[in-house]
Amino acid sequence: MKYDLHTHTKYSSDGVLEPENIVKAAKKKGLSGIAITDHDTIRGYLKVKKYETQDFKVICGSEISTERGEVIGLFISSEIKSTTFQEVVEEVKEQDGIVVLPHPFDDVRRTGIYPEKGDIKLIDCVETFNSRCLRQKYNDKAAQFAGENGLSVAAGSDAHFAREVGKAGIITPQDNIRDALIKGDLNVFGEKTSIVNLVLTKMVKTWRTSGWGK
């Protein structure tokens, strides 16, 4: 089973991918499924879910903005309404979801949370490979933090464009992906994306938030 656990559709403020196209891209890469983790919403998941089949699973997720940085909730069932780190974690847990820290040590983007010792009991997984971390040392720091603190790991492409889907993720022999993440019964794979994709994403976000894209 091969999954990309961090992807974005057009329902993210900086996304452009149509639900059908993100599934096509994932299947082309040989993925068994994907997690849709749009910024501050699960609307993308609800659209992509329509394309789920017996052989291709779609996981409900969201990358939520907090006062400390971004948190991913996986296997959630409804919108996360809170905006503070502590309350977001509580909401995800109330939905029996998994709390993932995405790109926690990325000094270029500066949108990840820099975890502290007190956060360990709140976190389920650390994203130890994110394709958009331009310097490998950021992924390495994440892996080191997870290892030193007994935390499970996750990985994803952070795709905003079809060509990025499947660049990173996990491989597991388990059918139950949630259990695989909690138990750490998986291997991480990944390759870095081009800096061009990050620049294009910035342009998309500026275009949309300025009102030009309306």
Rank of each mutant, 00 (worst) to 15 (best):
Y3W: 10
Y3V: 00
L5A: 05
T7N: 13
H8T: 06
T9G: 01
T9W: 10
G15T: 05
L17Q: 12
I22D: 01
K29S: 15
L31H: 10
G33R: 06
I34Q: 04
I36H: 05
D40F: 10
G44T: 13
G44K: 01
V48C: 05
V48T: 08
K49N: 00
T66V: 13
E67T: 12
E70F: 11
L74Q: 00
S77N: 12
S77Y: 01
S77F: 07
S78V: 06
S78G: 10
K81G: 07
V88G: 01
E91Y: 09
E91C: 07
V92K: 03
E94Y: 08
G97L: 08
I98Y: 09
V99D: 04
V100P: 09
H103I: 12
V108P: 03
R110G: 03
I113S: 02
Y114F: 00
G118E: 12
I123K: 04
I123M: 04
C125D: 01
S131G: 14
R132F: 09
R132Q: 14
C133H: 09
Q136C: 00
F145Q: 06
A146G: 13
G150W: 11
V153Q: 01
A155D: 03
A155K: 07
G156C: 09
G156M: 03
D158T: 11
R163S: 13
R163D: 00
E164Y: 10
V165C: 01
G166K: 02
A168M: 01
G169R: 07
I170W: 01
I171E: 11
T172L: 02
P173W: 06
D175K: 09
D175G: 14
D175M: 02
N176K: 13
A180K: 09
A180F: 14
I182M: 15
L186T: 05
N187I: 10
F189G: 05
F189H: 12
T201R: 14
K202G: 15
T206E: 12
W207C: 04
W212K: 14
G213H: 15
